[in-house]
Design a protein around this nucleic acid. Structure first.
Lengths: 140, 140
DNA sequence: TCCATATTCTATAGTCACTATAGATATAGG
DNA sequence: CCTATATCTATAGTGACTATAGAATATGGA
């Protein structure tokens, strides 16, 4: 069973080579064995680990949260309450961002429909930015 | 008419003191006059400028876009086509982010409703992260 | 007037999660 | 054997700030 090179692991996990080295440096991914010429030699479970990390990153979890989730994976009989909390916090953060972005979207749309594409002097985009009171933007 | 201190400008613009100095350093805000003891002495228009920047930042415009918008403000007779383009690009980016965040929200919700708050061994949150195929997540 | 507190100044480093670069070495394919 | 590719390390850069350290100045009360 031949060991996997960092390039192969990158290929099958979808995580870029420099990012894999970065994860190793910050202790998110265990350092693998090395070949005689000092190259990293991975076992297939590194691919699983990296997929886990990648998926969590795509979902917007930060590195510290992922570190905790990985730590939990190593203790399968513990309560998963903490994983639940992390995911719930993430969901709340995502909902908050959606709400704020939706408000921004509205404001940008109003800006754009009011600008009659003339001169900067009369440009609603510039005007709205210059005077917050002119817009209906209501975030907190 | 007394000049405004950086603290007063920060107070009335809503931009923090270190951030104002940062904007000056990167050339987004003109360096004001200095007092005999080397303190910044602002005129009231600095407050307007900073409000413009703050509002644009709240709308998610990046510094380079803001730089262009400010540059345009200095040429009021030019066409505002570029401002329009910048705002349109921003709108598109915001719409894209909303779409992706909405997908993530769905996935997080599914994760959470499936987890029966038991042991890590059976935790859907951990499971879903470990195996992308188990989720219906469809971004790009 | 003195003193304590608050404000300001500069320069530098830290944040997050990478990404890019430079320069050296090693391997694989033709 | 030669060349192109892959790997290695260390370091610096990204964006938009934020934090820190250490010095100088200003403000307000006893």
């Amino acid at each position: 069973m031949p060991a996997l090179s960092i390039g192969q692991v990158a290929e099958s996990s979808g995580v870029k080579v420099p990012t894999i080295r970065y994860y190793e440096r910050i202790g998110l991914l265990a350092a693998p064995a090395r070949s005689a010429s000092n190259r990293r030699e991975y076992t297939p479970d590194a691919v699983q680990r990296l997929r886990f990390i990648r998926h969590a990153r795509e979902l917007g979890f930060d590195i510290e949260a992922i570190r905790t989730l990985i730590e939990m994976q190593h203790h399968p009989t513990q309560s998963c309450e903490q994983a639940d909390e992390i995911a719930s916090a993430q969901l709340a953060a995502v909902e908050d961002r959606i709400e704020r972005l939706t408000a921004l979207k509205g404001e940008l749309e109003r800006m754009l429909t009011c600008c009659r594409h003339e001169r900067v002097r009369n440009c609603r985009v510039i005007e709205t930015l210059a005077d917050h009171d002119k817009c209906l933007h209501e975030t907190h």
